[in-house]
Amino acid sequence: MKQILTLMLFFISNLFFSQELDSIEVDTLIVEDSVALPKKNSIGRQLVVDGKQIVNNIAHSYLSPLSWEKKNWVDLGGVALGTVIFYSVDHDTSKFFRERRDKVPNVIQKFGDYFGGPQNNYGITSAIYLTGLFTKNDKIRDTGVLMISSATTAGLLQTFSKTLVGRARPGTEKGKFYFKPFSGDADYRSFPSGHTVLVATTMFSLAKQFSNPWVKAGIYSVGIITPLSRVWDGAHFFSDVFLSAAISYFVVEGTYKYMNRKKDKAPGKIAWKLNMSPNMIGLNGVF
């Protein structure tokens, strides 16, 4: 299983680098005086900067509901409605998936549980961040910051929710209506799913970095294994993993926009874009 995760990490890194090398349009360069590019921070300094960014990202996520607009409340209502709908059929969906567990290849079952484990998932996100840090590749490093911020934000939220709600896991055979808040017993920590939160934040963050729909589809295909495995194993109901994935999606979206807001609105700078084609080379500056 470790070999599979190592190959995944190698594949992810190659996707980042190949996308940059194969792109016809060179990434926009933000410069202050149109002559020299800003110097890169040292590794130590960059660690401090990114640490502050992670803390700011987490704080922003928790405080953002105070400034939500109508669209955000509509999204919340949609998630709540979807959770209620899946909750209403939790008994049937749980039975359906659990009865088919033996038909799922053993390697897929193990991968789903292993990939969603906190120590393994944070190992992957940390490796992505450190790769960007030491190679001084801002895109990979920023992706790592996004992953760590989102996983921490959503992870803390789901940990608190599990304890507060105390929903019995399907494997206890107590049914979808049984709750035991603040019990501290692992059998009553079904809602929502921690494994799903970690994998979903990782995959949503990673998919944000690619425009190719086939690459996105591949990322999501890998990411869906863990949520389904939690239902197969009787660790969670389908409504648990649905809510977890929804939380992860909106946390990643909000954090991504927050991280890029300052870059998009940087005043007094010129954005230089180099465009190349077989018979033309052009340099455009946007004020």
Rank of each mutant, 00 (worst) to 15 (best):
K2P: 10
Q3F: 13
M8Q: 05
F10H: 14
F11I: 07
F17A: 14
L21Q: 11
S23F: 04
D27H: 13
D27A: 13
V31A: 11
V35N: 12
A36N: 15
N41R: 09
V48F: 06
V48E: 09
S61E: 06
G77E: 05
G77R: 06
I85N: 08
H91T: 15
F96I: 04
V107S: 14
I108N: 13
G112E: 04
D113T: 15
Y114E: 01
Y129H: 04
N137S: 08
D142K: 05
M147P: 08
S149Y: 01
S149N: 11
F160H: 15
K162W: 06
R167K: 07
E173A: 09
K174R: 03
F179P: 05
F179M: 01
S183L: 00
T196L: 03
A200Q: 08
A200S: 08
A200K: 00
T201A: 02
M203G: 08
K216N: 08
K216S: 03
P227Y: 01
S229N: 07
D233E: 15
F238N: 02
L243K: 02
A245S: 10
A246Q: 10
Y256R: 03
Y256P: 02
M259A: 08
R261Y: 15
K262F: 14
K262A: 15
K265H: 12
P267A: 05
M276W: 12
